[in-house]
């Protein structure tokens, strides 16, 4: 089973990014607008324009703060806000401003309603992305981070803000390790992913 841990520091939340290199800059004009790391369809379509193939991109090419603030189809981050059906479609919303939550989708984010409640949003987004690519007869490479970009890594690239008033998703009051909490979330979500996708299909059909 893949771990959330960072490749260097072994801490899923407070890690240093392995790449990009310090001289890599955000591309000015993204070739494709997508919601997050590992959800790009083609070579050179990530935030830095350097990825080799589908699904291996480093980060979102678009960024928005939250629910209904996205400008294009396929940019909705999902989780945190939105109804059950909407939260089953991370990175797969049909229309501008329909996304359920902010992008990029950090590894720590969980759904708040429906089949993906209290489960990883990024893993569901990646699964739906792989299904779309499979339908299009495309090969998909590994995501740089197997469970999505840790919040600390996103913050190291610049300001990163997630939604809501209930506080940081990656946090400790002194009685837990944030990395272990995220690891538990990821493992539980992976274990249940097939069932989640199946249940989400029902939610979508209800929509």
């Amino acid at each position: 089973m893949s771990n959330v841990r960072d490749k260097n520091a072994g801490n899923g939340c407070g890690s240093q990014p392995v790449t990009p290199q310090s001289d890599q800059k955000d591309i000015k004009t993204p070739l494709e607008l997508h919601a997050c790391m590992g959800l790009n369809a083609c070579k050179g379509h990530d935030r830095f324009g350097t990825n080799n193939c589908a699904g291996t991109g480093y980060c979102a090419t678009q960024q928005h703060v939250c629910h209904t603030l996205n400008n294009c189809a396929g940019q909705g981050g999902c989780g945190l806000f939105g109804d059950a059906a909407e939260q089953c479609k991370p990175g797969a919303n049909d229309c501008a401003w329909q996304g359920s939550c902010a992008t990029p989708i950090q590894a720590e984010r969980f759904g708040t309603l429906g089949a993906n409640k209290d489960k990883s949003v990024w893993l569901l987004a990646r699964e739906l992305f792989e299904q779309r690519m499979n339908k299009s007869r495309r090969n998909v490479g590994d995501s740089p981070y197997p469970a999505g970009p840790p919040q600390a890594w996103l913050m190291s690239l610049g300001s990163y803000d997630s939604c809501g008033s209930s506080g940081d998703k990656s946090c400790s009051f002194g009685f837990n390790s944030p990395a272990e909490n995220t690891q538990e979330l990821v493992e539980r979500s992976k274990r249940d992913l097939a069932d989640t996708v199946k249940a989400c299909d029902c939610d979508k059909n209800d929509d």
Partner: peptide
């Protein structure tokens, strides 16, 4: 219903317990 107008829970209707695990106030 079924137009996405109403969600029983969102990130503002939950809190974190002592071990920072989310607790949801409303039931689906």
């Amino acid at each position: 219903p079924d137009r996405g107008y109403y969600a029983q829970n969102n990130i503002d209707t939950l809190y974190y317990d002592k071990k920072h695990k989310p607790v949801f106030e409303n039931a689906a």
